[in-house]
Amino acid sequence: MNAELTIKSAIHETLPTVFGYLGIGIAFGLVGHAAGLSPLMIFLMSAIIYGGSAQFITVSLLAAGSPILSIVAATFLINSRMILLSLTIAPYFKRKSLADNIFIGTLLTDESFALGMNKLNYTAGELNFPWLNTANLIAYLTWVSASLIGGLLGNFIQNPERFGLDFAIVAMFIGLLYLQVIADKSLNYLLQITVIAVTLVLTYLGMIIIPSSLLVLVVTIIGCLLGVSLKKIWPQTH
């Protein structure tokens, strides 16, 4: 990454993540096909819901014939971490027009969020519309077309799990997490490692009582609270 906030630098910096989204998008299309959805419906789900891993839950509930309202509620809850991501990144666009803000928000995703947060470490805390919008558009187009490809490939591929494609998104988060930790100068390195360890414990313990649809959200809310508290008592060495 560099300090340039241009469309060109955004393309250059987003392209490596395309493979992660391709993998999970194709996996989603295959799962949708296996659940009996047509390629058109798979395409529409990815284009309209744009919920990443949340869509896997939507599909399984659809296949089970659950009531519409309960599917909508479940999808909202799983995807509600996006509220936190939007809250975190929105202040960088405060001076932009409302239309720009709505457009950025509409296509924001975990991946462009993480890239944006990473980018801040190189740009002295600046983000702009062309850069993030390009990262958003690439992620969106990749997700939608990969889902469609997966839906069409569904006729030929049985048992998609054996290719390990479902791990693409996890691998991407591991990579983005590592890159964030080594690039973020605003938080002490050891403090970050401690917060990650705390998150591991929270995730493990949380699984006992928190339904999977809410797990990531609840763990994030509590993890950040503990992070702030730890920072307050952390020895000031930097």
Partner: peptide, 20 residues
């Protein structure tokens, strides 16, 4: 300050939840 922790915590949570 609170939101400052969101990136690392959410990415860790997404990773760790796949480990169990």
């Amino acid at each position: 300050e609170y939101l400052n922790f969101v990136p690392i915590v959410i990415m860790s949570a997404l990773w760790f939840s796949s480990l169990f």
